[in-house]
Design a protein around this nucleic acid. Structure first.
Lengths: 223, 223
DNA sequence: CGATAATTTGATTTTTCTCAAGACGCGTGG
DNA sequence: CCACGCGTCTTGAGAAAAATCAAATTATCG
């Protein structure tokens, strides 16, 4: 079960003294640590935006749904990364914990207040948002123009860059999540991974543990 | 021929008195008006980011290329819209004028300076960037999960919302541009438009002038 | 150990792309 | 004014890629 947000804890962020908020790392410090269990919703599309989030541990998916249930995952968020940086009053995306997560939660109003007082916080906020935009734009190129093999290769290299421990990549997400991130079906993802195994580009310790054996070959596909 | 940027004109932005920069509309005021002819490059991927841009007239495409020439257009920018809001030192995208354009150009360093002095400018900058991010995320859903007919319907409704004059939509971009925006081929775009004409969803005054006759039918496709 | 979910594999269909050709529009020069 | 040329757009036929439908296999969890 998801641990409930306690309003009292969260409101603290609004009342932190200005001195503790200054500087580039300010967004790290002013929040409340929350726990979410795997599969639980962090926020839903259409809900009012109240917080800004940073992953401390675990992994988060942000996604949109079409009316008939088709899902597009916009991003996976791993430890150290922010999400929920939206300007609109209501969330345009939904966010769910993929696995058990610890999330730092900061009231958006508190962040705005900080940003108003401290230009370096404002700049950091902008910079994080612009980085998210750059990532989204890269992903548009993948979704619009890459073949299935290219998409999977790009994904594996991305995960290997972001989350590899001593050569092994531990994938926190299911094949369905990967498919919905890459704009493919689960079968196509699975077949492509199987082909990469046959080609000895990668090796599967288990379906969620991957070792990249031939990064050069994958990079060739990462057009 | 593209009218050259004159350094002297552009540098003015750095030296405007603070009083004229204050307030939400500040980004509108501190720049230099530039003209670009159709097809000319405004900036290229990999070039250092020097300016922030606002379309005054005409239309702009921002895009990325794969090594083999495949192109993904990330957005079309119409009058009143900003582009070039990137945090990195170098452009991650290229930008070209689609038609003859007038563009307001503001030095990024000047905008940063303004944002440091005036929190409302910082907030506007963030807000514009976050809006761009929201648009990019919507477009990921289209590219990842929508059928050709859904993509074209979404595009036509979007253009009709943004650029219709008395019921007629004037498309500034070619079919190839539309295809590269929607992640389709030019032939698929053309065929889909033809189907919409046969179905009486739309009417073509010319290939670039479209009248939406049945917006409800298009909206049904805009899943 | 059994039940259930996740992943893989196979066969077939559908969608979109590719290759090809024709039509249309528009500007230029005769 | 008209013909020509060039670029854009449309249409057609076939091929390719990925989706869908179906089933088998493997992993996970009580």
């Amino acid at each position: 079960m998801t641990i409930q947000l306690r309003q009292a804890d969260i409101d603290r962020a609004d009342h932190l003294p200005a001195s503790s908020l200054a500087g580039i790392g300010a967004l790290d410090l002013a929040g409340t640590r929350m726990a979410y269990e795997g599969g639980s919703e962090i926020y839903g599309e259409g809900e009012p935006v109240e917080y800004i989030y940073k992953v401390l541990s675990g992994a988060v998916r942000t996604y949109k749904l079409l009316s008939d249930g088709r899902r597009q995952i916009g991003a996976f968020h791993l430890p150290g990364e922010f999400f929920g940086l939206e300007a609109a009053a209501d969330h345009q995306f939904s966010a769910e914990a993929i696995s058990e997560c610890e999330i730092m939660v900061v009231k958006r109003s508190a962040v705005f207040a900080m940003a108003g007082r401290d230009a370096s916080v404002a700049r950091e906020l902008w910079s994080l948002t612009a980085a998210d935009l750059a990532r989204a734009q890269d992903h548009m190129l993948l979704l619009g123009r890459k073949s299935a093999a290219e998409r999977v290769a790009t994904f594996l290299l991305e995960m290997s860059r972001r989350a590899s421990v001593s050569g092994t990549v531990e994938l926190p997400m299911s094949r369905q999540d990967i498919a919905d991130y890459l704009g493919l079906t689960i079968e196509t993802v699975s077949r492509t991974i199987s082909q990469f195994v046959s080609s000895a580009f990668i090796q599967l310790a288990s379906s969620r543990r991957i070792v990249v054996r031939n990064p050069v070959a994958l990079r060739r596909l990462d057009a």
